Simulated scan of single mutants.
Amino acid sequence: MNLTPYAALPASLLDELRAAALDPDRIYFDIVTALHEDLPAEAVDTTSVATISADATGQADFNAREEGVVAGLGVAALVFHVVMGDTVTITDRVADGTHVTPGARVMRVSGPTRGLLTAERTALNYASHLSGVATATSHWVAALDGTRAKVLDTRKTLPNWRALQKYAVRCGGGVNHRFGLADMAMVKDNHVIAAGGVVPALEAVRAAFPGLPVEVEVTDLDQLRELLDAGCDRILLDNMDSATMVEAVRITADRASLEASGGLTLERAREVAETGVDFISVGALTHSVIVFDLGMDLSDT
Rank of each mutant, 00 (worst) to 15 (best):
C232L: 05
S48H: 03
T122W: 04
A54Y: 00
T301E: 07
A20N: 14
A168D: 11
S288T: 11
A136E: 14
G72C: 14
A20W: 05
T89Q: 13
R65F: 07
G172A: 01
T4L: 00
T101F: 09
A168R: 15
H81C: 01
Q165T: 02
V100L: 08
M84R: 04
R65Y: 07
V272Y: 14
V192T: 15
A8C: 00
S242N: 13
V94P: 05
R26N: 14
G58R: 11
K188N: 06
D241R: 10
A71P: 10
A104D: 15
A64K: 14
V75E: 04
T4C: 10
S138T: 06
A8S: 13
A104N: 09
D23S: 14
L285G: 01
L17P: 02
V291H: 09
T101G: 09
A64P: 05
R206Y: 06
Q59T: 13
E271V: 12
V133M: 03
L212Q: 13
L236F: 01
S242E: 12
D300K: 12
V192K: 08
C171H: 05
G103D: 01
T47K: 10
A194K: 04
V175T: 15
K156A: 01
V282C: 00
G173K: 12
L3W: 13
S128A: 15
G262W: 07
R155Y: 01
T286S: 06
R170V: 15
D189V: 01
R121F: 02
S257I: 03
T4W: 05
L236Q: 03
V82F: 05
V282T: 02
R114W: 02
G68Y: 02
A34F: 10
A142H: 14
G85N: 04
L264A: 01
V187G: 03
Y167F: 14
A207I: 00
M240P: 04
G111V: 05
F29W: 02
R250K: 14
